[in-house]
């Protein structure tokens, strides 16, 4: 009997120790930094996509202009089209992210 009690005591002690270590692991700052870097990386990606959309729109408009001698009409329309594309891509990205988040939240609710 006393052996069993001894064992249970020890296992409880071990459990509390493991719990303490787990808690310590959870609030390490390296995870935070990694998440922060990932956010920075996604922001950088979006900025580049936005600017290249404007540049490509402008280039496309200018290409049409030089072939049909309509300068600067095509350039203006192209840059506006590029801007619209950039905003559209940002919106699509935001929608996808929101869907992703709402689906993970509902999964967590189920669990």
């Amino acid at each position: 009997m006393s052996d069993n009690e001894e064992l249970e005591k020890r296992s409880r002690l071990l459990k509390s120790k493991i719990q303490k270590h787990l808690e310590k692991d959870e609030d390490t700052s390296s995870e935070d930094r990694k998440a922060g870097y990932q956010a920075y990386n996604e922001g950088f990606r979006l900025v580049i996509e936005f600017t290249t959309a404007i540049l490509v729109g402008g280039a496309l408009g200018y290409f049409i202009d030089t072939n049909f001698r309509t300068l600067p009409g095509g350039l203006i329309i192209g840059i506006i089209l590029g801007f619209v594309t950039g905003v559209y891509n940002l919106m699509r990205y935001g929608n996808d992210k929101a869907l992703e988040q709402s689906s993970t939240v509902s999964n967590e609710d189920k669990n």
């Binding site: 950088f44 990606r45 580049i48 290249t52 540049l55 490509v56 089209l81 619209v84 594309t85």
Partner: peptide, 18 residues
């Protein structure tokens, strides 16, 4: 349709510039 075309054309540029 023009938006999708511009979006497609800007892919190689954003891929390489990034």
């Amino acid at each position: 349709v023009p938006i999708e075309i511009v979006s497609f054309l800007s892919r190689p540029i954003s891929l390489s510039v990034r």
